[in-house]
Design a protein around this nucleic acid. Structure first.
Lengths: 210, 210
DNA sequence: AATGATAAGTTATCAGTGATAGATTGTTGT
DNA sequence: ACAACAATCTATCACTGATAACTTATCATT
């Protein structure tokens, strides 16, 4: 006889699928504290309460863990941008609020942001396809939302540029510059952060909207 | 007898001080290709034609090499900006031309630009004090030139922001966003490059000048 | 209950990393 | 020729990410 039902794995100490979440939780904590490269797989394993090789039953590489966290973080960004967008009419306030969502996301999630936008693919041809590809696709989804948002303002004749694609790329680059520098050059003597962000967004808005 | 003259070190095969330059050249090549933490000290040593421990006679750590390259990249930028600055009066055209110098520098010198602004060093804690200090100082010099330029326009009452420091950081971040994305995400479906650069600079100018 | 299959986790180990210690070589001024 | 010393090498350290082989726990079936 053969069974048509699926077998269920062991559930005793190891919680099966939940273990994966425990590992991700440990990795997220450590990555956020010290950055991906400064955290070892042994440290992750210890915090997760398992042996180091056991990690590789759930993730192919360490970068794979980072990629998973990255995808989830971008899902949050898409969610946030979507939520911020339905709020109201295309006004100056809502425009700046949308830009602010992006900046806040990058600052609060530097590791996913790094993986998606700051790490270059030339590191290892296979790397981008295997792990960094997923975060990049997730990031581009967020970019698409961004373009839709800009498109709304452009449809109302509020943007300086007629080309929504051009306007979006320009705005995105402007936002990315601030976020990436605050992440990669945190030691630079920036002016007070809140002042800087507000001024930067206001400048972009003045340059983009009529 | 004792000599009052300084002794000159060996000059035979090892070129003395030139060796340091050879190491830096090798490191710059590899760092630019694959990023700092994807390059091993053994690879640098091999390309430089020496043994791996010999590196440590010239640099205290691997990050120390990156820091040195960073300083030099800044120096080149300072030189270029200084040369471009003497051109003329604070007009809209000259303002955009100054921004253009920065963008062109980044695009034409992607490797130094990467090392200076895009490649992150260790999050080691001790690193910041030991090695990041020098690039930071050099960066401040480049930033200072940029701020002086902005200050000229601010003195003429042409800038939106009263605070020249704030206006400069904002502008710099805006420029860096475009340059770094064009370098790190060259495969992205950008609009025509010249159009994008011109639109970006024009947007920053509209947002920064009255 | 005993069994075979399989999932999950272990210990032991690999090659490669940045960095250090100590021996060795080569050049120099006397 | 020789002592001094800089420059470099070989050997090695502790640690990294990752793999292999083995052990244990759970399950469906008899």
């Amino acid at each position: 006889m053969k069974t048509s039902t699926t077998r269920s794995p062991r559930k005793a100490k190891g919680h099966g699928a939940e273990r994966r979440e425990e590992i991700l939780a440990a990795a997220l904590t450590l990555f956020s504290e010290r950055g991906v490269h400064a955290v070892s797989t042994r440290q992750i394993a210890e915090l997760a309460g398992i042996s180091q090789p056991a990690l590789y039953a759930y993730f192919t590489t360490k970068d794979d863990m980072a990629a998973e966290l990255c995808v989830r973080a971008f899902a949050t960004l898409v969610e946030r941008m979507g939520a911020a967008r339905v709020e109201g009419q295309p006004t100056v306030e809502n425009f700046e609020r949308s830009l602010r969502v992006y900046v806040d996301f990058g600052i609060e999630n530097p590791n996913p942001y790094r993986v998606a936008f700051m790490i270059e693919k030339s590191h290892d041809g296979a790397f981008l396809e295997k792990t960094a590809g997923r975060p990049l696709i997730a990031g581009l989804e967020a970019f698409g939302l961004f373009r839709d948002m800009v498109g709304e303002y452009q449809a109302e004749g509020l943007t300086v540029l007629d080309d929504a694609q051009l306007a979006t790329q320009t705005l995105w680059a402007g936002l990315h510059g601030l976020v990436s520098l605050l992440i990669a050059r945190a030691e630079f003597p920036w002016v007070e952060r809140e002042t800087l962000i507000a001024a930067h967004i206001a400048m972009l808005r003045r340059g983009a909207l009529k």
